[in-house]
Amino acid sequence: MDMPFMAEAFVSLLRGLPLTLNLAAVSMVAASILAIGLAWLRMSDVAPARATAIGYVSFFRGTPLLVQIFLIYYGLGQFRPTLQAWGLWPFLREPYWCALLALTLNAAAYASEVVRGGLLSVPAAQVEAARAVGMSGLLLYRRIIIPIALRQALPAYGSEIIIMIKSTSLASVITMMEVTGLAAKLIAESFRVIEVFVMAGAIYLAINFMVAQTIAAVERWLSPHLRAAPGSILPSEIAHV
């Protein structure tokens, strides 16, 4: 391999890293908030609320993120006058906000299932015991339900973070120059496909490795009673385009 070129490629790809991390972090936070709302709707007693949540989740999980990005970016561009009237155009005009919106809406659908899974995994006996000693409302959530649900949902949530980091690569299709966008540009300029993609792949692998290690550490820290049982480096289910 041509080492000087690889080093050069690595340096220019790193310039896209802040944007990759920014997109991943902001959309993950926004998606988590939206996911809690969706999970709450999904577990509500009101049928239309449940149906809305189910419809939302199955639509965003049943269609490719890439198409969702094109739909939001180019599709909404068609309705500029209306969006201007609503005051949304200053945001939707920018590819950055469109990418964030698409990533957030998509990830929220998956994350809401993680949240729901976590809440459902809280043993009824624990809740009953808490009620028996007189806990209720917020205190019950804060002391019992949230800690248990969080611990249960953590591995799946970790997978979602890794998927999100991989998904940000799709923002390159709407002119965002994050790591993959820069890689495509570099290839078009240097015509050296394999070197560039090895370096880009290494950057993603490194980030994801660090994320996986962090999640594993938090998991160990949250479950002192379950130490041992080493798992694989990455959590088991890591994809959904």
């Binding site: 890794i162 991989k166 998904s167 690569s169 799709l170 390159s172 993959t180 890689a183 993609f197 880009a200 792949g201 993603y204 692998l205 994801n208 490795f209 990455l234 890591i238 994809a239 385009v241």
Partner: peptide, 9 residues
């Protein structure tokens, strides 16, 4: 590796 890098790559 395959699960750690973007599919687009």
């Amino acid at each position: 590796v395959l699960r750690g890098i973007p599919d687009l790559l």
